[in-house]
Design a protein around this nucleic acid. Structure first.
Length: 230
DNA sequence: CAGTCGATGTACT
DNA sequence: GTACATCGACTGG
């Protein structure tokens, strides 16, 4: 059941149609920059502008989950474009991708960075409810202040797992369609080629030289990770 | 700053 | 077993 989403302060349109996603993956990746990822929750509307992505493809990309064919984990990647592929990694994080191209192609675009537009208080709450038992060791005098900074505006969505956490996306959202449900991507003005840079990918070793990472020049919400070392 | 490292579940060899 | 499309805390300069 589609419901209309309106962000009065921003120039945007309707949810992107399936045809948007069912094109060459690198084109979709670049075109996704500037579009608005949104989710309707009971607590309110969450919305953020996409500023950093990475493309993955079954063909010639050893880093893609789909590279060795379909499995129970990656089967959503083989659906036709317009679905959300969510996977669990490092024992504690989720990352989300937008499936591209036609059925059985095994291609997707990872969302790595977004600029929050609406529902920032909800995002902060989603990000802040960390399990206090996990990952904390020795205490430090300024630990509390440091922890407060981590939940600041910038750190809400400047990384792939942070985007999922801020939006409350988890394995339950794997495979949802983005073209008319509670989770969708709204059309918005595309960036000009001069506003976009591309580079090798972040945090992987295989096929890292493929220049399939795209980001908006100068955005504060582009993730800061450096390439994985060999 | 930059570099390192532990946490932690799951898919896959 | 091992690797993993990460994050945040910590350490040394």
């Amino acid at each position: 059941m589609a419901r209309r989403v309106t962000l009065p302060e921003y120039d945007h349109g309707e949810p992107l149609p399936a045809e948007f996603y069912r094109r060459a993956t690198l084109e979709v990746a670049a075109d996704l920059l500037g579009k608005i990822f949104c989710r309707v929750t009971e607590g309110g509307l969450l919305a953020a502008r996409i500023v950093e992505v990475e493309a993955y493809h079954q063909e010639g990309d050893m880093a893609a989950h789909s590279f060795n064919g379909k499995t129970s984990r990656n089967e959503v990647m083989f659906l036709p474009g317009g679905h959300l592929y969510v996977y669990f990694t490092y024992g504690m994080h989720y990352c989300m991708n937008v499936v591209t191209e036609s059925e059985s192609r095994g291609a997707a675009v990872l969302i790595r960075g977004m600029q929050p537009l609406a529902g920032i208080d909800i995002m902060r709450r989603n990000r802040g409810e960390r399990n206090r038992d996990a990952g904390t060791r020795g205490t430090r005098a300024h630990g509390a202040a440091s922890r407060a900074r981590t939940v600041g505006h910038i750190d809400l969505t400047n990384g792939p797992a942070k985007c999922c956490q801020a939006f409350g996306i988890d394995r339950g959202h794997n495979g949802v369609l983005l073209t008319g449900g509670d989770i969708s991507i709204l059309d918005a003005p595309s960036l000009t080629p001069g506003q976009i840079s591309c580079s090798g990918r972040i945090g992987i070793k295989k096929s890292r030289e493929l220049p399939w990472r795209f980001f908006e020049n100068g955005s504060k919400w582009v993730s800061r990770s450096k390439p994985a070392s060999s």
